[in-house]
């Protein structure tokens, strides 16, 4: 996306758009999330709302709501990148946090995670000399301190749906799941192969098997998530 507005469509640079709806203080409300519910992936899925294609300007977009977290993802591209010849497309991720809860460092970490995930998955060779931009808009967050990586897993799922909506070729559906206890998010493709892994807690793994169990559990959950994503996609037909 260009920041240069040569056609003067957006008006002066310091113009602030009108905002309707919740102010940021209201959207920061913290609904209580039951920890038992975090364990029950099926009930989470039944509470998730997804819609695609809402942003007509973008090549693809998705909107996802779950338990006070609202995310919208829009995909722009593939579009030309001038300069030296590139055989593969380059991916580029931006996260815009309307609630102003995500710190800059974490913002970069999220972007990096999404970028790593999807460079693995997008069929990059199909789009030479071009770039794909992923814009993530976080509209509302529920209990960020505890569930920040839950948010990341939701962002990743929303991005998958948006990419599919855009018609950009991807080798498989990425489904991400989150483990509260170890503060881990893992993104899976195919039969439980991992494209993204992020674990950040002060937990000490005395036994390597503990981590294995987390991977197994998240792998099982991700299959359920994947199936429901497929169900959603196929229901459009």
């Amino acid at each position: 996306m260009s920041t240069l507005d040569r056609r003067r469509i957006l008006g002066p640079a310091n113009v602030k758009p009108l905002i309707f709806g919740l102010s940021s203080s209201q959207s920061k409300q913290e609904n209580k999330i039951e920890e038992e519910e975090e364990e029950d992936i099926n009930s989470q899925i039944s509470k998730t709302f997804i819609k695609t294609g809402l942003i007509t300007n973008a090549n693809g977009s998705s909107y996802l709501e779950y338990n006070g977290n609202i995310i919208s993802v829009s995909i722009y591209g593939p579009r030309p990148v001038r300069g030296t010849f590139t055989e593969k497309t380059s991916l580029d991720v931006h996260l815009d946090d309307n609630t102003e809860t995500i710190s800059d460092l974490l913002n970069k970490k999220f972007c990096n995670y999404i970028e790593n995930n999807f460079t693995t998955v997008i069929n990059l060779n199909k789009y030479p000399k071009s770039g794909i931009s992923i814009f993530i808009n976080v509209l509302s967050i529920n209990n960020f301190q505890k569930y920040k990586y839950k948010l990341l897993s939701l962002i990743s799922d929303a991005t998958t749906i948006a990419l599919i909506n855009s018609g950009i070729e991807i080798i498989d559906i990425v489904s991400s799941t989150f483990d509260l206890n170890s503060n881990t998010v893992i993104s899976f493709i195919k039969s439980n192969e991992i494209v993204g892994l992020l674990s950040d807690s002060n937990k000490i793994y005395k036994d390597v098997n503990d981590f294995n169990k987390i991977i197994k559990k998240l792998g099982n959950d991700s299959n359920i998530v994947k199936n429901s994503l497929i169900n959603y996609l196929m229901s459009g037909n």
Partner: peptide, 12 residues
């Protein structure tokens, strides 16, 4: 490609 980015319906 679509009229993407800052076009007729600029999205900033």
């Amino acid at each position: 490609s679509k009229e993407s980015g800052i076009g007729m319906n600029g999205y900033q």
